[in-house]
Nucleic acid binder design. Sequence first.
DNA 1: CGTGTAAGGAATTCTGACACG
DNA 2: CGTGTAAGGAATTCTGACACG
Lengths: 112, 112
Amino acid sequence: MNQQDRSYKDKKVISIGTVSELTGLTLRQIRYYEERKLIAPYRNDRGTRKYSFNDIETLMDIADKREDGVQTTEILKEMRLKEKQRESEAEVKKKMLQGQLNAQFRYGRGRN
Amino acid sequence: MNQQDRSYKDKKVISIGTVSELTGLTLRQIRYYEERKLIAPYRNDRGTRKYSFNDIETLMDIADKREDGVQTTEILKEMRLKEKQRESEAEVKKKMLQGQLNAQFRYGRGRN
DNA sequence: CGTGTAAGGAATTCTGACACG
DNA sequence: CGTGTAAGGAATTCTGACACG
C-alpha cells in the first residue's frame, strides 16, 4: 500500500453510528473498547468521535476475539505483541536493504 | 491501486459536516453540487448523505474550477469528458494486453 | 446561477450513572 | 468484566423557501 492509500485508511473521518453499522457492534461496545485503550478515535472540536477504516478493521478483530471469550485485557496484550512483531520485521527488512546497498557499493567501486 | 485500497476510497461513509471541514465548502454548496449532478452521495436509512474520499477529491476539483469562474454545467461536461477519456485508455490497454497474449501464444506454439 | 439564511423537526452523539451477572 | 438502558443537553442534518445579484 502506498502513501496515498494509507492516508485513506488512516484518516479518522467516520462517526460512531456508521462504525456501528459497519462492524455490527453497539455504540456502548465501541466506546467501551476505547475506554480499554483498544482503539483511539480522533475527537473533533465538539468532542465527537471520528474513526478510520483501520479502526473499523481493528474493531472487527476485537469482535471476533470477544466472541471467543477473550477479555479486553488479553486482546490489548495481543495487539501490542503484534505491533512489536511488525516493528521487528521492519527492522529486518531495513537491515537487508542496507546490506544489499553496501554490497552494490563495493561491487561498483571494484569495477572502476 | 489494488481492489482493497479502492474499497476505502470509494466507500461512502463520511457525513456532510466532515466533508465541509475537509473541503472548505459550505453545506449549502455541497448539497447544491449534488443537485447539479456533480456528485452522488449515498443516502442511509434516515436519508443522511454519506460521501467517499473520492467524492471529496471531486469536490476539491469543483472548488478550484468554481474559483476560476467555471459554471457547474461546464464542470459537469468536463467531468463526463474525462470519464470517456479514461474509458478509451482502458480500452487501449486491454487491446495491447490482448495483442501480447496472442503473440505469446503463437510463439509458444512455434516452439513445439 | 450560485449561495446565504431562518425555520421546524427528526435523528445523533456525549457523559455519568445505575443495573445485572 | 462487559454491556444495556434511561436522562438531559448540545450539535447535526434534512427539506423547502425566500433573498440577492
